[in-house]
Amino acid sequence: MFLTSLYNTVMDANKPAVDLDELVLKFRPVVAFRVRKALGGSTPDWEDVADEIITQVIEKVRNGEFRGESSIGTFIYTVTSRRIVDFIRQKTKVLKGGPEPSPWPDPSEDAETRERARIVAGAVQQLKPKFKEVLNLYYYQELSREEVAARLGISPRRVSERLNYAQKLLRKRVRS
């Protein structure tokens, strides 16, 4: 709500060179992704941090701090990175000694994410064993392409082909 009201104020006050409506729509997911990746999905504040960053960006654009010397993407990336660093500095003392946040977002965090994860996992389960095996070794066990190739007795190029083909199949099945 706060974000929306601030956003409307900005739109009413000036005629910014940047379309703020489009900016929020386009960059909110990118900022959220970057923040979640940096802080971990289990960090409870990560969505608040993402909202703060978008608010900061709107304010900065409104105040003329974005002068077009870089792309708007790079500008927002810079604001995001600084805010993440600040957040980590503020929280370091609190987090020190606490449980290590999971590097991977917990798919049970909301119903929509859980449902998406179920669909994707179901699609993975239906893949042929040779594709599942590559996904297991590469994404779950986090072996390099070369290590996967050595384990399976195929070339690294073949590993890449299987990964690409598996992703293509998954994309098709998840969308259908």
């Binding site: 997911p29 992704f33 792309s71 991977w104 996992a121 993975v124 297991n136 994404y139 998954l170």
Partner: peptide, 27 residues
């Protein structure tokens, strides 16, 4: 932050990896 095409692929791949990581025992 500047390439929406890469970001879309990044999101898709992240979803795949997250699903694999969280359901590895079943998969």
């Amino acid at each position: 932050f500047n390439c929406s095409n890469c970001f879309a692929k990044l999101q898709e791949r992240d979803e795949l990896i997250s699903s694999i990581k969280s359901r590895s025992a079943w998969l």
